[in-house]
């Protein structure tokens, strides 16, 4: 018993891998089997945490942290926002398929992806080195290696991605911006006396009203 315990403790990698693999697979199955979209999203969070654990087990600590911050902390939160605010947070009955032959196609795609991963895991033709060669260096110079790759070898693609993201954000803001107009002001004109009086009234009677400077901004969460 004692020796068994010792031998198990001596292999933390194996224990961590098994536990994380179970979490990842359970989460993945949950995503596609739950009827309620919120439950599916939560299963996806579970998968993300499992993958982050696997990253840590491979000494890729930075990737693990980014995985949690970006995917679990931002993207799936956005999923949940959309699900909750659109009011589709009820179990749906999928009696009719939206796209014909959706299920067989999904099965084929799954098998192809699995085959691809299995081949990539052993093949050398992509980069000349084996894809899955194990941990790169020890855990603390992980960040340095990523920084070196991103800011020297792959600087141009990295910056291009950054610009692309900024453009996407700006255009999203522009497209969703609604202009709310103060009707009285628009009709009477800013220079007429009536408006000045009305504004003074508003100031005196309703000091808790938001100031008119911010009226053209509509906050949508």
């Amino acid at each position: 018993m004692d020796s068994l315990l010792l031998s198990v403790i001596a292999k933390p990698d194996l224990i961590v891998f098994l536990a994380a693999a179970v979490v990842v697979i359970a989460g993945g199955v949950g995503v596609i089997t739950y009827r309620n979209p919120v439950h599916s999203a939560l299963s996806l969070v579970m998968t993300m945490f499992g993958i982050a654990t696997l990253f840590i087990e491979q000494n890729a600590q930075f990737l693990a942290a980014v995985q949690i911050i970006v995917y679990a902390g931002a993207i799936i939160v956005l999923f949940l926002f959309v699900i909750m605010l659109l009011g589709v947070d009820r179990s749906e009955i999928f009696s009719r398929e939206r796209i014909r032959a959706q299920r067989p196609l999904a099965a084929v795609a799954g098998v192809v992806t699995l085959g691809e991963i299995l081949i990539l895991g052993h093949a050398t033709w992509a980069t000349g080195a084996k894809a899955a060669t194990g941990a790169v260096g020890n855990s603390s110079d992980n960040v340095f290696k990523i920084a070196q790759a991103v800011f020297s070898t792959y600087l141009l693609p990295f910056e291009a991605t950054a610009i692309l993201l900024v453009i996407a954000v700006l255009s999203a803001v522009y497209l969703s911006k609604r202009v709310v107009v103060n009707v009285d002001e628009a009709l009477d004109g800013p220079s007429s006396d009536g408006v000045a009086v009305a504004n003074e009234d508003a100031d005196r009677e309703a000091p808790w009203e938001p100031d008119t400077e911010n009226d053209d901004e509509v906050y949508e969460v």
Binding site: F62, I69, M84
Partner: peptide, 19 residues
């Protein structure tokens, strides 16, 4: 080694409970 990133990760995960 990821130290302070862990703090950020956990505080971003804390949103789930509230939400």
């Amino acid at each position: 080694p990821m130290g302070i990133l862990f703090v950020l990760a956990m505080s971003s995960v804390a949103v789930y409970g509230t939400m």
